[in-house]
């Protein structure tokens, strides 16, 4: 009997052993699902009388935003408060980066203050990876250049799963400025890993055919894509990144790719309309459509908090790789 008992084993549990979250490209489908399941538990915390748990009590989180951002920083900050962590915010203008300190030196100084979790937004792709390789602290990528924005994609996936009950098999259209969008990249990796069908739509200058190599479809005809979509994710036209002209003008963009009231009539009644914000009303989306019944834009904001709580808890809650290595290393 003893042998039999052992063969049956215990319940299989999902595994999470990462100290950093740098992008969705590195994660397996199981790991992504684990984050979404954990976010479910943290979303429930928001409904309690006391919306705060002691999970990260005594830990220090540094919000290090070298590129300006209000909503992502605020979301991480509130998530950290709800986990009982202490939070310091550092912005680019306030930091010594403007005085010529290198990124690595700034980060080492933060570590010398015993920061446990570093949430980094940076204009250079790979900056979070650079620091993750060098610091004992957990590093969470809050957007690096045009590379990845993993927590945004995770909250998009969470919102889709919450509303539609699944992700596999859904047809998701990502519309707009794909070339410059880290949100698009992280979404593409996550959606494909979880079995969705992804179509990118936009002007050919902003949606190059090269993206097909990732396993997505590319289309330049929005009116053909909309009727089949289960989810449309509209990306903001990033004026601040477009120093050169990628399309003739906003008027033409709206005419060809904007989700106008008329165009929204092509959508299936249960198709979800998403936008990572901040929205340019009247450009990529009409005001009425953004506020309509199919829009889940505000759900995305609420879910972002739960997803970021899950990510901070998961990366900050495990013994860091470095400390584990040190613990296991032979005594010399």
């Amino acid at each position: 009997m003893a042998g039999k008992n052992n063969e049956l084993g215990r319940q299989m549990t999902a595994r999470w052993t990462r100290k950093d979250l740098l992008g969705l490209r590195d994660l397996s489908a199981d790991e992504i699902s684990f984050v979404l399941d954990t976010a479910d538990a943290f979303k429930q915390v928001g409904t309690r009388e006391i919306k705060k748990v002691p999970a990260l009590r005594g830990r220090t989180l540094v919000n290090f935003f070298v590129e300006p951002s209000t909503r992502t920083r605020t979301s991480f900050e509130l998530a950290a408060f709800r986990l009982s962590a202490d939070v310091i915010n550092i912005s680019a203008t306030a930091s010594s980066l403007t005085k010529g300190e290198t990124l690595k030196d700034t980060a080492r100084n933060l570590e010398a203050l015993h920061a446990d979790i570093l949430v980094l937004r940076h204009s250079s792709a790979g900056a979070p990876q650079f620091l993750a390789d060098r610091l004992k602290a957990s590093v969470i990528n809050a957007g690096d250049g045009a590379h990845e924005h993993p927590t945004q994609a995770l909250l998009d996936l969470y919102t889709i799963r919450e509303r539609r009950g699944k992700i596999a098999g859904l047809r998701v259209a990502i519309i707009g400025d794909i070339l410059f969008s880290r949100v698009a990249r992280s979404n593409i990796f996550g959606l494909l890993k979880l079995g969705a069908h992804v179509t990118l739509v936009g002007p050919s200058t902003l949606v190059p055919r090269e993206f097909e190599k990732l396993g997505v479809e590319v289309s330049y005809k929005i009116d053909e894509v909309l009727p089949r979509a289960d989810v449309v994710n509209l990306l903001r036209i990033q004026h601040e990144r477009q120093r050169r002209e990628y399309f003739p003008g906003l008027g033409e963009y709206i005419r060809l790719f904007g989700l106008t009231k008329e165009r929204a009539k092509l959508l299936k009644p249960d198709c979800l309309i998403m936008h990572p914000g901040p929205i340019n009303r009247g450009v990529e989306i009409d005001s009425d459509v953004a506020d309509g019944l199919q829009s889940v834009i505000l759900d995305q904001v609420t879910n972002g908090l739960a997803v970021r709580m899950a990510v901070l808890y998961m990366c900050g809650g495990i013994a860091t790789a470095t400390s584990t290595l040190q613990a296991c290393a032979p005594q010399i």
């Binding site: 549990t13 052993t17 830990r59 809650g317």
Partner: peptide, 11 residues
């Protein structure tokens, strides 16, 4: 928290 090499599932 912070002492486990692997994170347990939260429900």
């Amino acid at each position: 928290v912070g002492t486990r090499p692997e994170l347990p599932m939260v429900r």
